[in-house]
Design a binder for these strands. Structure first.
Lengths: 375, 375
DNA sequence: CTGATTGCTGCAAAGGTTTGCAGCGAAATA
DNA sequence: TATTTCGCTGCAAACCTTTGCAGCAATCAG
């Protein structure tokens, strides 16, 4: 039913190649012919079949974006930034949600493989080796994970976690708990490592609770366990868990921040709306989305996959793959306060800093880590 | 670089058609041959090129989902439900975000057209005539809008708005304001109509403020205007605006619900997390997503587009297009209370009902509206 | 006036798959 | 033994484009 290039050719009395050129190389066709073809195309409602075009050019002008959980407000800013960046370059973004399921991740990469020019793999839960394997099927840029030999954009959550712990130490906390994230999360491992180091360096007890579902209910379910741990301060894998935990603690009669201080990570919009407003580590999500698209498209413009569309792949095939790390910043709000006085915590801690307070600039690539690594 | 069907054929010493059948019609090929082919395919890492397959079968096994704003928590449950429903039927969902922009909507439909078997158009902002035109290019199911001749799934926001207004009237409010939604929103028009009727029927003043951006900041920006209107109760187009408004009112020193009652629509997860917890009209988003996928696929399974893949389109071409409307329900929480006593409001109003309180069952299709309409 | 250039168009192959049809050998039937 | 049936495989067309190459007429340079 929908008109093909052949219909237009017939209607305007030219060869299909002329119709094709009318759209993809207008300067090669006589203005008179061109307008006639355009008129016919318009009338028939003709639209080039992008799938067929992709088959021969090797370019779909689509990019896939695979994320763990669309319901997590962490992702929308990243998605939107990626979309707008892609649109500027005349690309479209298709988003897909994996429900935190590594199997679904793999399946989606396969499903997308031939329908996009590259995939942004955001917060993958699958193994590094699987990612490497998939990267042979379709160009990949990994977000929130470092994989050797692949282009990655990460956020310096290690630094963020350290700042958060140091903030808590400064408030006198000496028993700090970490609610870790889902199994398979690179971010969670980084946070755990950095927070552990910082806590021990400050002479504090450090207990890890998890792995956990990185959701509000996931956080709420941990309230009891946190209480039992006798921690006076908690760092959560993300804001959603932190908010859930606060709710859960509230239900148990523990007040935040008087009894327990809570720090999240991400700085989602919601963290400014809850009471108390959440102290959290802000991650530069939008910048990450933009950067990832840039990295993919830069890669991508160099050499078209398959077919003779791209005239000759560069003989220098070892492409350099950049690994970028973006800065994070601690945002102090109302969910952290001086540790309650008891045997172990220091009552003489410095007083709480009121109101929002930013400690670092928003995610610029760090000079040290923004370098280039040969794949 | 990636292996094609030809490579596998060569490697296993059979014709490409046998390889093809190994995957798409295994029972037609000798078990022995089959396993040999499978082994070779495995070894070469062969995956059928879905785009090429789609070209001839006319089926991509993808469906597109176009939504207005991914950052609005209203959508994720709908998206997830659609995805899981689609996955059960062996389809994949590609989500795209339009930033509330009608132009982007149109462009995205075109971009998706040949790469999916159908598109779910959620909360469209473009004109009905444009939607009809696009529907000739690709099967469409419209969500949150009624378009004659097209399959639609809507939620009974009219009923919801009426319940909300009646709830407010029952609390003694006699000056009710409506924060309307974005231009082009069918839902917003429905709400406005129903709320207006109900308010006037209850003898209340009814003022409409808008159209507005349906976001938190959009709502916050209206606080002053609401104050000036002297309304004691406000119904917002969605929860996000309601929450923003509460923030805005708070900043102005007006307390919710003591000074002003606020009702939202959607019942997003967030509405349970803010203080005060939001009274709102719950919409069955997940059910809508599921239903829409069902409607699309039912349509879709009947007759494959183009090519000889589907053997013969049914001669009876006037397909019946269902229009389903799902029920909504008022959820009473803490953001509504008895109207403050003044000249115009009734001080003798019934007292506030404490705690969550559900008035209707969750979105089952109503018998009256779940019918079938010939296109 | 000849030869080269330019501007436009047509031809046909290619991209990776599916599928109706035909062919072939072996088994089952008569 | 002759004939049908059956199970499996190969052939080739088709899906809709893009694009290198060749052809053609008209223009230009010499």
């Amino acid at each position: 039913m929908p008109a093909t290039i052949r219909d237009v050719a017939r209607a305007s009395g030219v060869h299909i190649s002329t119709v094709s050129r009318t759209f993809s190389a207008p300067h090669l066709v006589n203005p008179e012919t061109r307008s006639r073809v355009l008129a016919c195309a318009e009338e028939l409602g003709y639209r080039p079949n992008r799938a067929a075009r992709a088959l021969i050019t090797g370019r779909t002008h689509n990019i896939g974006l695979i994320i763990a959980d669309i319901a997590n407000p962490f992702f929308p800013p990243l998605i939107k930034a990626a979309e707008s960046q892609a649109r500027q370059r005349d690309y479209h973004v298709f988003v897909a949600d994996t429900n935190e399921d590594p199997i679904a991740e793999e399946e989606l990469v396969h499903a997308l493989a031939k329908q996009v020019d590259g995939v942004l793999l955001c917060s993958p839960r699958m193994s590094n080796s699987m990612i490497e394997q998939l990267s042979r099927e379709v160009p990949l840029v990994v977000i929130n994970r470092q994989v050797a030999g692949l282009p990655c954009v990460t956020m310096d959550v290690g630094q963020g976690a350290r700042s958060a712990v140091e903030h808590l130490l400064g408030l006198g906390h000496r028993r700090i708990a970490l609610l870790s994230g889902p199994r398979g999360s690179w971010t969670s491992r980084e946070i755990r490592r950095a927070a552990g180091v910082a806590a021990r360096a400050g002479g504090a007890e450090f207990t890890v609770i998890g792995p956990n579902q990185p959701t509000e209910t996931g956080g709420a379910a941990l309230a009891e366990q946190v209480r039992r741990s006798a921690a006076t301060a908690v760092l959560a894998y993300n804001d959603l868990m932190a908010i859930g935990l606060i709710e859960g603690l509230d239900a148990l009669g523990a007040r935040v921040p008087q009894d327990v201080s809570v720090v999240g990570i991400d700085d989602i919009a919601l963290s400014r709306l809850t009471r108390p407003k959440l102290t959290t580590v802000a991650t530069p999500n939008a910048a990450a989305g933009r950067t990832a698209v840039d990295m993919l498209l830069q890669h991508d413009t160099v050499a078209a996959r398959g077919s003779r569309g791209g005239r000759g792949v560069t003989s220098d095939d070892r492409r350099t793959t950049a690994q970028v790390m973006l800065q994070t910043e601690l945002v102090i709000r109302d969910s952290t306060a001086v540790a309650p006085a008891d045997g172990r915590n220091r009552p003489d801690a410095e007083s709480v800093i009121p109101g929002p307070h930013r400690l670092a600039g928003p995610g610029r690539p760090t000079a040290a880590t923004g370098g280039v690594v040969a794949s």
